[in-house]
Design a protein around this nucleic acid. Structure first.
Lengths: 229, 229
DNA sequence: GCAAATTAATGATTTATTCAAG
DNA sequence: CTTGAATAAATCATTAATTTGC
């Protein structure tokens, strides 16, 4: 709402070729952040006051900006390419796919971090792979199996009464600890239950102090910030 | 490519009370995987062959498994509970919200891993917080601002012609290096462009060897497997 | 036989929905 | 009712297949 205040203008130049940046302060008392704005009253309307020095700039950092076309000399950034031979995206090997499908057929659908770690470790023996690849694979495979099934149920609604015999989808229990299911999840988008009741379970600390800062450890996506070296 | 070779057998152990499973072959020539099924013609029909020994069992690991009812002795896996004092979900402080809104108003929408890391580090000074909280906050805030706006455009379609003046959503460029936008993203679900074409960009190695194994570093969600200490 | 041009798959993201804690 | 968390659906954008012209 209110907000008024201007936001820094930033050099439009667009990051890319190191835009002097000047990230506001930094240097001295970097990070003021106004330790304790009493209440920061009525919701947003953030009045520009409050909040803090802090300079978004230090965050924003567009990273791999636009680039679309032009930009001609790209400097290449080169050399970092290292391995990463031809592809940008994961290109699974037959072994990897085989194992993943096996897991899928055995009923696994949305492996948790721990499982993904293990799977990734194993699949890594057959080719380059990252945890997110495993995650995405399950997401996509699940979704595509679903739509494939929907298609079939619409088109062949009559033929093939039952006895599909093949692929019965073993369905063990990884799914989500449901009691039921076992029939190849179909139906009109039914959710089983999501949160896994893992009340206990690590999750300790993480007061976000300076240290390990594993916060980033396992959260979302966005490959750009691969944090690299 | 080919690779073939075997996968270690793993100690069955876990898997609760190992359900015979017998996922197809296993045992002898573990991991045949049919190095190169010429075409694997008509889609699925997975035939059960292929795939491999490898023992899902070692992966699956029901973790927080079913639990819902029955299943009685769960072995508990216990001890992992650790801290995780009173709350299950992030409870942002005023400072944190203020900063996040500031960033949001400045145009940030989907911060990448690096940005999230920084933001988390900062916000951590005002209270417990994890990277995923930041991520989710942006996701939700964006979505909700959008629907709020949709509501408004439908309801007040007439009143308040334009000149909303307030919050213009500065929109710098973090968003995604677009050229346009700047008008408060609205409209009927319009996408701007996504992939950043950052061909170069670190991303080096990660052949998933044994070492660092940062694979898990930044991938999806699923808090249970917090991997903890 | 190949390589450009198409098309089919499918990896990676983003948006929309849903759930549930507070 | 608000909103953190998570999942599903919709999209994009590459990559491999496949086709086509020479």
């Amino acid at each position: 709402m209110g907000s008024s205040m201007k936001v820094h203008q930033f050099a439009r130049g667009l990051w890319e070729h190191e835009p002097s940046l000047t990230l506001g302060c930094c240097k001295t008392s970097s990070l003021l952040l106004r330790p304790l704005a009493p209440k920061l009253p009525n919701t947003e309307s953030v009045t520009a006051t409050a909040t803090a020095a802090f300079d978004l700039k230090s965050f924003i950092r567009p990273d791999s900006g636009p680039r679309k076309l032009g930009s001609s000399d790209q400097k290449m950034e080169a050399t970092q390419v290292e391995t990463h031979p031809g592809g940008t995206r994961w290109n699974p090997t037959q072994e990897q796919i085989g194992i993943l499908e096996m897991l899928y057929r055995s009923g696994m659908r949305t492996p948790n971090a721990q499982q993904i770690e293990q799977i990734t470790a194993q699949l890594g023996k057959y080719g380059k792979i990252e945890g997110k690849n495993v995650f995405y694979w399950f997401q996509n495979h699940k979704a595509r199996e679903r739509q494939k099934q929907k298609r079939n149920s619409i088109l062949g609604l009559n033929s093939c009464p039952r006895t599909s015999a093949a692929t019965t989808t073993i369905t063990l229990d990884h799914t989500r600890g449901q009691g039921e299911r076992s029939v190849v999840e179909e139906g009109p988008y039914k959710r089983k239950c999501r949160t896994w009741t893992f009340e206990g379970l690590g999750e300790d600390k993480r007061y976000c102090s300076e240290e390990g800062d594993k916060t980033l450890e396992l959260f979302p996506l966005h490959p750009e910030g691969k944090m690299k070296g």
